[in-house]
Design a protein around this nucleic acid. Structure first.
Lengths: 168, 168
DNA sequence: GAAAATATGTCAACAAGACTGACATAAATT
DNA sequence: AATTTATGTCAGTCTTGTTGACATATTTTC
């Protein structure tokens, strides 16, 4: 081949190129530190971020089924099965047979699961409150509206299924 | 053992528990869709998100050294080496011997690398602009301030090394 | 100038968490 | 009775992260 031009480009890619790098990069750094807090706690339990997500949504929507959880997380059955099994085996989540449809497994947190879920979100909540204060935002509505608008419209209905959602 | 209480908890974890779930969850969904755009493009090249990050920062700070890149990405030498080698081998990045310290390798994008980097950030930038509009935010300063405040203070200096940063 | 420290590259091995596709079971629906 | 659905499970793959050891070239220090 060798139809490639190896000349190094020495000027940085900037705003002039029509791209909003500031927010792109801020999101990257912010999200990394945002997830670092719970990650550190999870490590002590031998869990990872995948366990956190499962535990989180089971606590936010107790009784949701495996299919619903797959829909929220957008991962495959196999990926979920692994971490869910560990959470059930170690007593953080229980599975109950669905009352109307007995094929379904409703997922509920145990006391232990509820406590861990809360502990994991506390540092994240603290970070958010501190950031709101530092950025001198009186309420979080603006940030929430922006973040919601960043989500694909088709997926916003799912966010509304969670309790304490903004009542539109 | 069996000192665990298996009783299912049927009430959802809510705001009353003192945690700001709205923003926590909005961040999760927003970041997922935000990264999905470039991921789809990268797949066509046989690259992943790791390649994107490397390519991005090399384009934003042409000439940065391997050590500096490791510092920004906070991954290990080995993790970087794999993806960097692929990017160099396929002509997206070139390595030049450092002029003062010849042990260093300065990283620069090629034309091809610059173009791909821009293509990857375009959909992200479009999503951000659309979200700002939808959330009726005249400018992005508020969002930027909030996201910056979400980052650990020690790491903010690194963000300032990127071009077109807010001049504080 | 010799010794030590530094920047980078590379090797082998491992782990988490995503994926696919196939197949099994029980229960509900047609 | 046949089909579809919800879930579980098996085997195998891929990406991207990890560790620790070691090699090389170069710079810095004594």
């Amino acid at each position: 081949m060798s139809n490639t031009d190896d000349t190094p480009i020495r000027t940085p890619l900037t705003l002039e190129d029509g791209v909003d790098f500031a927010i792109i990069e801020h999101l990257f750094f912010a999200y990394r530190d945002f997830t670092a807090d719970p990650d550190a706690i999870l490590e002590r339990y031998g869990f990872g971020r995948a366990h956190h997500r499962v535990l989180h949504f089971v606590n936010r929507r107790p009784g949701l089924t495996v299919a619903e959880l797959l829909d929220v997380l957008r991962i495959t059955k196999q990926s979920l099965a692994r971490v869910l099994k560990q959470l059930v085996d170690s007593g953080y989540i229980v599975q109950l047979q669905g009352p109307r449809d007995r094929r379904q497994r409703e997922l509920y947190p145990t006391r232990k699961g509820r406590d861990l879920a809360r502990d994991l979100s506390l540092p994240q909540s603290r970070r958010i409150h501190a950031a709101l204060q530092e950025a001198q935002l009186k309420d979080s509505a603006l940030i929430e509206r922006f973040l919601r608008a960043m989500v694909n419209p088709e997926l916003r209905a799912q966010m509304d299924k969670l309790p304490n959602g903004r009542p539109d």
